[in-house]
């Protein structure tokens, strides 16, 4: 199913970038780092398509582009449909001898708004049809491009501009949608979660998603200092803490079989190493109100939700 692709840090560093510098992303933007790492996993001729969102906007301001691969953006809710059309065209043109490449990989990129919310129909349809492409969700947990509005990917308790922490309501009242599990439920061959602190794991998973025959879904955690009101220097640290607190565990589901990836497996085997969620929450202004006397109890609620989800994942991975 997968090649035995091995790489060293040096090889990755030396591999030419396909997502080029000069883009207009903010300081500390983890999605930009994620894209750069994803593009390091590319194995050959590749076409990339991008939903509307931060990464599309910062990378394609005409007449400039950060893309060293053929790239297209069409709209917000249809990244997976873009991929469907490209993949279908490649398939038939290859069959008719109208393109020379033996194979061209297709990658679709979208943020949480373009995936959890407005893009889920196109995504669900495309994977049901079984198109061969990798869909990468870079999840910064709100509509950052339009100014930090809540999405289906925004976690409980986070303050956004449409779920502001007020004197009565403590930020978003709903939980983050379990999007990767929803994709597993589509019975596609490969689903995984990744976080840029664990860059080797991230690149390996992106490569697996590219290699697998059929649809693959990669959910990547991607801190946004502007939206999270966090220190731009701490984005990678946050992407580590999210895993260490089990807020964002790392796992893969190959043909529906869940298995924990090493950074999370370590925590399953040695639960004492699991950090309290407060350590993760306290570094972010979007959770600042949870550290006031009025809403303090909610950090316990977040701990409870996190533990529950973690236990459920352990059961899926056969680790309880």
């Amino acid at each position: 199913m997968f090649s035995e692709w091995k790489f060293t840090a040096k090889e990755i560093a030396e591999k030419p970038d396909l997502f080029l510098s000069g883009h207009r992303a903010c300081a500390g933007c983890a999605p930009a780092t994620v894209l750069r790492l994803i593009m390091k996993a590319v194995r050959g001729p590749t076409i990339v398509t991008n939903a509307t969102g931060c990464m599309e906007v910062v990378s394609s301001i005409y007449p400039y582009t950060s893309w060293a691969v053929p790239w297209i953006h069409t709209a917000f809710e249809n990244a997976a449909a873009n991929a469907s059309g490209i993949e279908s065209a490649l398939k038939i043109l290859k069959k008719k001898g109208k393109i020379k490449h033996e194979h061209v990989d297709v990658i679709a990129l979208a943020g949480d708004g373009g995936t959890y919310d407005i893009g889920i129909q196109a995504l669900s349809g495309a994977v049901e049809r079984g198109h061969d492409f990798l869909y990468v969700l870079y999840d910064n947990e709100a509509y950052m491009n339009t100014g930090i509005q809540r999405s289906g990917g925004t976690p409980f308790g986070a303050s956004t501009t449409t779920s502001p922490a007020g004197t009565v309501i403590p930020g978003k009242l709903q939980n983050k949608k379990p999007i990767a599990d929803i994709m597993v439920a589509h019975e596609i061959p490969y689903v995984a979660t990744a976080s840029p602190f664990y860059w080797r794991d991230l690149i390996t998973k992106a490569r697996k998603g590219i290699e697998v025959d059929g649809p693959a879904f990669l959910h990547v955690f991607a801190p946004c200092p502007r939206g999270w009101r966090s220190d731009p220097a701490k984005s990678i640290e946050l992407s580590r803490l999210a895993v260490e607190t089990c807020i964002f565990p790392l796992w893969e589901a190959i043909n529906g079989e869940y298995q924990l990836s090493t950074p999370s497996k370590v925590l399953a085997l040695a639960p004492q190493k699991k950090k309290p969620v407060r350590e993760y929450l306290k570094l972010q202004g979007r959770f600042r109100h949870l550290f006031t006397p009025k809403f303090e109890k909610l950090t316990e609620e977040i701990q409870r939700i996190t533990d529950e989800r973690w236990q459920r994942l352990l059961r899926k991975c056969g680790m309880t």
Binding site: S84, G85, I86, I92, L93, K96
Partner: peptide
């Protein structure tokens, strides 16, 4: 026919797929 027939989940995706197929050279 020698055609890739894509039965999409909506018209929005149908036209999107035609658009990207078209700019891929189809």
């Amino acid at each position: 026919v020698e055609t890739e027939f894509v039965c999409t989940e909506s018209e929005h995706s149908a036209l999107t797929a035609c658009l990207t197929a078209s700019v891929t050279g189809a």
